[in-house]
Design a binder for these strands. Structure first.
Lengths: 80, 80
DNA sequence: ATGACCTGTAGTATATTCACTACAGATCAC
DNA sequence: GTGATCTGTAGTGAATATACTACAGGTCAT
């Protein structure tokens, strides 16, 4: 079982994925990892390596900083 | 010992570091890892996690894509 | 209600990252 | 030449990332 907790960074992966109506399985296939791996990353349970991160950014056509950040992203309620 | 080989991504970490006349030890201290870890990353021997990557980008004040890329960076000889 | 698909969670097993120690070669100041 | 600092390399060991299997609950179409 992966680590039960591991914040330390923030992710918009899930937001991006649902915005584009993609399943984890689809994203996983596109970047070449297991679909559970996407789930763990979405939940912040572990910190993906740069290779996977770059593949995700390329797939979503956004800069890395649009998916991952050390500081929390503004919530949608705050206009983010 | 880390993996003897592991390309799959390209890094400008060493270039950025030397450009600013910083030692590995200094960079390592700034981002909170062992100085050998910086060496391994510079040599592409392993793929750092997003947390470390974001701390490096923040320390150098550049976007992640300026340090790491899936595609090779243009060589200095080519004007890059 | 059944089936298809998505998600959350859990467990096990393997690979990789990273810390740390150590040593040798290079450079540079003295 | 001695000492200080940087680098490359290597080895061990711990922590973490990832693959994979499995099951339960949800939604949605039929």
């Amino acid at each position: 079982m992966p680590k039960p907790d591991r914040p330390a960074f923030h992710s918009r992966l899930r937001l991006l994925r649902t915005e584009r109506a993609l399943s984890r399985k689809e994203v996983a296939a596109a970047v070449g990892v297991h679909y559970q791996t996407i789930g763990y990353i979405e939940r912040g349970e572990y910190s993906p390596n740069i290779e996977l991160v770059l593949r995700l950014a390329r797939h979503f056509e956004v800069p890395v900083e649009a998916i991952f950040s050390l500081d929390p992203y503004p919530s949608i309620a705050d206009g983010g």
